[in-house]
Design a binder for these strands. Structure first.
Lengths: 325, 325
DNA sequence: CGACGACGAGTAATCGATTACCGGCGCAGT
DNA sequence: ACTGCGCCGGTAATCGATTACTCGTCGTCG
């Protein structure tokens, strides 16, 4: 920058003013400076600028599991919306681990991100204090944490789960196996509760997984090994649904003849299976956009309210009809 | 930091020395400083540190399309390896657009990333100059660019494509439709060339897509609309494969009875389709890891060589047998 | 007992920007 | 012609670290 100033015969202050579009510099001074910048191929050092202005134009996005296409899609949407507003996104992947998450929160705060988007891996709220202490705007995505006082963006699956319950009951299912998410995540608990509630008195067999593929397979195996087999499985996450499908295939069980299957969270390939899988679709992209917008609002000093976007049931035929003998 | 120094009754220099594990400070001084840090909840400002040390412990990762699970997986692997070495990853998504890519390269350089991993959206090498001028270590991932003098990490599909060609010929296919990638990407060109070469003299019908879903559908429609229909389609990317599958479904065509299908780049759901899809699997995770490691080596001043990891054919039965009447 | 070496810790320059404050110049009013 | 007001642009402090250089002190050796 000193070089540019010298080259243009002005001071660094003037260069800075030109760079930041201040009204002060004369058109010709401005031109000289711009020419010097061009000639020297000068690029301002964003670090120095950020140090001075305390703004990095960067968001931190902490995802609980990037292998999960649901989160990958969210990451994409967040990045898209952020970019549209001139922000970069630093991506961090907690791999569903609480410690990793805490480590990353710290790393992102240290890098002075202007805002933080977090899909909490667990309910453990310890990391929250650090964020609050640092005064960095925070938005929670997909999952909540107890005691969080920040905006939350998530999908509301209550209605969709109720619809699914209806649909299963109507199809004659009476033994339902649920592959639930971890009990220490809000989505893990809520989906199970809402689904159970919608079934009225009907009991379900529940096995908890961890929102990952292998756990879906294990859970499916366990459920199909019960003395009284479920006639349909409900996987509360696309990866566990994938694992369940693989396990059913391995066991030689045919969907929906031997056992039905429904999955929470749609993926493009579900309709291509035979039979196409009945799912609850989440508005992934909208969630990512909404979260980024909430964060921008927070940064602008507004008080964005929570966002709840509706998930919805898409019946495709993988739940079958039970023979009422 | 001044507060900490004052609180511990030392100078900022000493605080800094404690923080950076220098040998100098006495154990008791060290203890006093650490106590003060703890008490005040002090966290060092990474920006200031980076400004001084010219190291951000951050990689920039420029992906050509984050919707593509292939790249999402790569991103995950890169992030994983980077984290293992104490680096963060700033993620940028070019959406297969050259301008976007150039913009992002600049943004990442301005943020003084310690290294850059790029999956080039196109062959356009204009952005390369800026990177070279900035002296930031660069590694190319998945795709090359002409005139690039940096390490490249990619999958070598020649053998797998030759195997696929053999497999199709043996199955009796004589009219092969290829849904190729864009001609202005190295992967787009190479896969097509290598496949054609392996077919010997046999001509193929080629439609170029853009590595995205919709283009796969369009290409499939176009190919199936030819006067002499191909008996098998080869999609050179998983998203185009997905699009093709959707289009074939829409047209009421059954795989492999009406038309066979093979896809470049495996995805976990391909084996679940009926029939399971024959694919060429790429070592995605290894590519991500290798790329991050190459970058680390570059930063360490070494001269890592290019990495070529073998893709391999996985026959699953979606290519069928042609009736030899 | 004096001097020198070693080591711990402080002073201050520096990284590359932003910006409050101030000086100088030109123009207008009386 | 002199004063005053504006406006352009320079000087220098500042953001929060790192680190070369220096100083003071203590221990040891001759």
């Amino acid at each position: 920058m000193k070089d540019v100033a010298h080259h243009a015969g002005v001071s660094t202050a003037t260069v800075s003013r030109v760079l930041n579009g201040h009204a002060t510099p004369t058109p010709e001074t401005r031109a000289r400076v711009l020419a010097a910048i061009e000639e020297l191929g000068y690029r301002p050092n964003a670090l120095a600028r950020s140090l001075r202005t305390t703004s990095t134009k960067t968001f931190g996005l902490l995802i609980s599991d990037l292998v999960n296409p649901f989160f990958a899609e969210i990451a994409r949407a967040v990045e898209e919306e952020a970019r549209a507003h001139g922000y970069c996104v630093v991506l961090a992947n907690a791999d569903e681990s609480a410690e990793q998450q805490a480590t990353y929160v710290r790393a992102l705060l240290d890098r002075r991100v202007d805002g933080l988007l977090v899909c909490p891996a667990t309910d453990d709220p310890s990391w929250l204090d650090e964020v609050i202490a640092s005064d960095v705007p925070l938005v929670l995505l997909d999952r909540t944490v107890q005691g969080a006082t920040c905006p939350v963006v998530r999908a509301d699956g209550a209605q969709a789960l109720a619809d699914l319950a209806q649909c299963l009951i109507r199809a004659g299912h009476r033994r339902i196996g649920v592959i639930a998410g971890p009990a220490d995540t809000s989505t893990g608990r809520e989906r199970l509760e809402q689904f159970s509630a919608a079934l009225g008195g009907l009991a379900v067999d529940v096995v908890h997984g961890d929102f990952r593929r292998a756990s879906g397979a294990r859970a499916a195996a366990e459920l199909m090994d019960l003395p009284e087999r479920p006639s349909v499985l409900v996987a509360m996450d696309n990866l566990m649904g994938l694992g369940a499908l693989e396990e059913l295939r391995r066991l030689g069980l045919v969907v929906p003849a031997d056992v039905g299957l429904a999955v929470y969270d749609d993926q493009p390939w579900f309709p291509l299976l035979d039979p196409p899988i009945t799912v609850i679709a989440q508005p992934t992209v909208e969630m990512g956009h909404a979260a980024a917008r909430s964060l921008l609002a927070l940064i602008a000093g507004e008080q964005p309210s929570d966002v709840q976007l509706n998930a919805r049931l898409i019946e495709r035929g993988s739940c079958g009809e039970v023979d009422r003998g």
